[in-house]
Nucleic acid binder design. Structure first.
Lengths: 327, 327
DNA sequence: TTGTAAGCGTTATCAT
DNA sequence: ATGATAACGCTTACAA
């Protein structure tokens, strides 16, 4: 391993000088600079980030905590974060929390131990002590906090839109699937939809679901039609659930969208590939990830941020699981 | 920030003693130990991993390099790696390479700068200098190397199976989609399938594709039926492409599997949610990720590994895009 | 059984 | 404009 001392020796200068050219601060004569730069090139030297991190008490590392990267919605967030960070020379330490507070704490702990300079987290409890006590910037992604920076989509409005669109297209017996109680965005969607449905005087029932996993999804989908056989419209809490419902509708010989309309949430890759393709509420996940990263970087680098949270609006993507209607 | 000195002071011992109880080496009196442990608890101390890493010249960090986490196949690998690492107290620095050598090199570079103790990489060029010159263990995941540890699925055999199954089920004019030329697993699948098709004297044409991205996939799917209108069987190079083909078949009013059979590759979540659900060659991605992590940990911790590479076998998942046949 | 001190590779302060 | 050197928080000889 080649160190700054090797470079100094090779260039015939002190380590201090090498450090100066490396960091571009302090005075250094042009000739000296080029000698040093040449030595760096010849020895193929790159500074040890760990030593830097130790001295400065800050690294170029960011902690990223997501519930489950296997859930198709999160890779887009992750990639958005990663791309923005990469472009700004930050690296990611990544963990899955499974929506579990314990795992979250363990990760936050190790983030700190590794001198990360900021964290991005999709937590259900942004007010938890572990975040309040953190003395580095945190940005909540896909989650809302009242008093801390967050980047999220307007789930409540998404729910309202879904409700309006399905009613407008003629569903009379709507089943509204309510996502896991502890997952905040899922609850907001639900509340928005329930509100709007009620406002419009639509008749609907609620089916509680407790998980977004595929295996469970199929069970919930069956339950929809078993418990509410006359259902002619389903608002699912995400696209996975919606897909499962669509599949179940097929299995039961129901025509979509003629007999049953279905609206999902998220607009993951899958949705456009289904047949019929899934009408859904789109969230700009990749962009949200990027924005969270931007925000965090701003916070880290001490810029005064004009806004500390950003809410993305969602849009209805009309595909084939809803009926056509005059606009 | 509380350091080992604070703990030492609080417990009335030297830092060396604290270090000893922390690491469980050297002699330390039982009474002293409990004093120290109490101090640790009272101060809520956790050791600074950066300082450790600097001194020992090794961290508890692993570099994970994947082509693109938004491609639905990779999250499963990533999660497998993560779970195994997490259980063994290793953390992941994660990056996307987009199959680009330049990005790969940049990441490997920063991995080294951060003292990672091992790397897991899905590269198309395991023999590249950047890997050969690395003096920490590397495991190639989803990719093969002759002389270095790797964890991969038997893509060639997968291609053969796909070919046999589709022929056996009666397709006579098969279009074989060849994945991006620089992506090794894609080429192996292709070669396996082409071989087996030839052996069986089946008639087939090849359509080259250059990307796995969704937007491109739809174009390639259209090309299949435009260029080879009499196609009655498609072997796609992955499930995304297969889904696009399925969708296009729908659009053209072709019945699946009666008019066209389709076989995909990977068995991602999506596949079982499609309608008809997609017959595909399953790779145990999550398990592969775990296995790669296990292997790497063994290498890092200096165990003599009984086998340094593991090949997973693939299986045909018969769903609804292929016809039923007597077994 | 415990403590002192050197050293890991940097950066930054202070001389010169 | 450059060089010595202390310091960052830890581990580990070595001494006591």
């Amino acid at each position: 391993m080649t160190t700054i001392r090797d470079v100094a020796k090779h260039a015939g200068v002190s380590v201090a000088t090498v450090s100066r050219v490396l960091n571009g601060n302090g005075y250094v004569h042009e000739d000296t600079r080029s000698k040093v730069e040449q030595a760096i090139r010849e020895l193929n030297y790159t500074p040890n980030e760990v030593a830097r991190s130790l001295y400065k008490r800050k690294s170029k590392l960011i902690g990223l905590l997501l519930p489950d990267i296997m859930n198709p919605y999160f890779p887009q967030l992750a990639r958005g974060v990663e791309d923005e960070m990469q472009e700004n020379d930050y690296r990611l330490i990544f963990g899955n929390s499974d929506e579990s507070k314990k795992k979250e704490m363990e990760y936050i702990q190790t983030f700190i131990q590794n001198n990360v300079v900021g964290v991005i987290s999709s937590t259900n409890d942004p007010e938890a002590d572990m975040y309040q006590d953190l003395n580095i910037p945190v940005v909540f992604l896909d989650r809302t906090s009242n008093d801390r920076p967050s980047v999220y989509a307007d789930g409540r409005e998404g729910g309202r839109i879904a409700a309006r669109e399905i009613v407008r297209r003629g569903s009379k017996a709507i089943t509204l699937m309510q996502g896991p109680a502890n997952v905040r965005p899922a609850q907001e969607r639900f509340e928005g939809a329930a509100e709007a449905l009620a406002e419009q005087g639509a008749s609907f029932q609620v089916l509680k679901t407790t998980s977004f996993s595929l295996s469970r999804a199929e069970g919930f989908a069956q339950e929809v039609f078993r418990r509410y056989p006359d259902t002619d419209g389903v608002i699912a809490s995400n696209d996975i659930l919606a897909s499962a419902v669509l599949k179940e509708a097929h299995r039961l010989g129901k025509r979509v969208p003629e007999d049953v309309q279905i609206i999902g949430f998220d607009d993951i890759l899958l949705s456009s590939l289904l047949y019929p393709s899934l009408s859904t509420i789109h969230q700009p996940a990749y962009e949200m990830g990027r924005e969270a990263a931007k925000l965090l970087i701003g916070l880290i680098e001490g810029e005064r941020m004009e806004r500390s949270s950003v809410e993305f609006s969602v849009t209805f993507i009309e595909r084939q699981t809803t009926r056509k209607v005059e606009s």
